Computed example of a mutant assay.
Amino acid sequence: MRIAVAKEIEVGERRVALIPDVVAKLVKQGLEVWVETGAGERSFFSDSAYEAAGAKIIGDPATLWGEADILLKVSPPQEREDGRSEIDFLKAGSVLISFLNPLGNPAIVEKLANRQVTALSMELIPRTTRAQSMDALSSQASLAGYKSVLIAAAALPKYFPMLTTAAGTIAPAKIFIMGAGVAGLQAIATARRLGAVVEAFDIRPAVKEEVQSLGAKFVEVQLEEETVAAGGYAKEISEASKQRTQEVVTEHVKNADVVITTAQVPGKKAPLLVTEEMVKQMKPGSVIVDLAAEQGGNCACTDPGKDIVWNGITIIGPINLPSSMPVHASQLYAKNLTSLMQLLISKEKALQVDFADDIVDAACVTYAGEIRNKRVSEELAALKVRG
């Protein structure tokens, strides 16, 4: 069984799928591990560290991809500078495990099916107790939530904590966090550690206790509809509920020094939480960090990938924030991948794809030339209709 780690070529991607410590454990289990030359450079893991762990360093990406039984990546396969697609390197019957954005880019899934590749998407790992160690969305979202607060603190022209000095008392910053999923909860914890007064909002009332346990005030909105989708994620709500939500949160946005938005719905454009009118009411010098920028943004003024000043408010729309912390992002992701691979490798070190396993069944998007995920098939059909 040969496991290969590809070098990421997506612009700005600094993570690597496996780190040397994890490679050493796989080699000890009797697995062969290939690592593309320079795969860990941007995560500060050298080729020599991988070699010391027992990996074979491969300079030619076509060889690495083409001879792998399981190919591990972080970002979805890309088009190379020479015009070739990374997908075309994969051999039929091989396994690709990566973030694939299958609902946002179903065309990639179709190419993988046509290539007869078994593809598992890390976005589709179910949110169950048994799958926690494989939940890469959560591991990476935690990093994003932490870093978002540091970015906000650096941009805010004020202290975060309350300070009593000979020159007078400094009031603590007021932070309003919208969305109390993994990223939001980590943002709450980080902002509290920095001494800020924190409020948090989420359409799911069940997260109230988690928010309060971290020392934040929970802003509650009573909605007359179900707000939780399968797997515990927030679901898209009606226009009437969106209007009701905006009415309640407007005052909290207005009074905040920092607003951090984290609300995303898998496969959908990010919900609009902060309107232009709400931004206009904020105090000059206030900061918004929009963690949903890559999906269109929770703030109407967000410019994805850019820091802008709009009406005196600094609005930051970071893209791929976990990649800015590549050492620990890679460490956590490597753990997620290896936990998942244990379900795909038999005791005899042979590949096994068992759809009776709920985790494998949920994550596997292509197998034997077919697209297995109904939602991905529907998105692909809609894409073709739109032309």
Results as ranks from 00 to 15, higher is better:
115 R>M: 01
136 A>N: 11
140 Q>F: 00
127 R>H: 12
94 S>N: 10
137 L>M: 15
123 E>I: 14
97 I>G: 00
92 A>H: 03
74 V>S: 04
138 S>H: 04
87 I>Y: 01
74 V>M: 10
130 R>P: 00
89 F>N: 13
129 T>A: 14
136 A>W: 07
106 P>K: 07
94 S>L: 02
137 L>Y: 03
101 N>F: 11
105 N>Q: 13
138 S>W: 08
95 V>R: 01
121 S>H: 05
117 V>H: 00
75 S>L: 03
84 R>M: 05
83 G>A: 06
95 V>N: 02
106 P>E: 09
91 K>P: 08
138 S>E: 02
88 D>M: 09
75 S>I: 04
94 S>R: 04
81 E>C: 01
132 Q>V: 09
106 P>R: 05
77 P>T: 12
131 A>N: 08
79 E>V: 14
113 A>D: 07
122 M>K: 08
82 D>P: 14
84 R>L: 11
130 R>K: 15
131 A>W: 03
138 S>P: 10
115 R>S: 00
105 N>I: 05
92 A>Y: 02
90 L>Y: 03
109 V>A: 09
86 E>W: 03
76 P>R: 08
102 P>K: 07
102 P>A: 06
96 L>M: 11
122 M>Y: 01
101 N>R: 14
93 G>R: 12
100 L>A: 12
124 L>R: 01
106 P>A: 12
134 M>L: 13
87 I>M: 00
138 S>L: 04
129 T>E: 05
85 S>C: 06
109 V>W: 02
115 R>F: 06
78 Q>E: 15
90 L>H: 10
83 G>M: 13
88 D>C: 01
99 F>C: 06
135 D>P: 04
74 V>T: 08
125 I>M: 06
121 S>D: 05
80 R>I: 00
74 V>L: 03
102 P>W: 01
133 S>K: 14
87 I>R: 02
74 V>Y: 02
104 G>E: 11
136 A>G: 14
101 N>V: 09
128 T>Q: 09
128 T>V: 14
88 D>S: 15
129 T>V: 13
118 T>V: 13
135 D>R: 04
123 E>A: 09
123 E>S: 11
94 S>H: 02
138 S>C: 03
94 S>D: 07
81 E>N: 10
113 A>N: 06
82 D>F: 12
138 S>F: 06
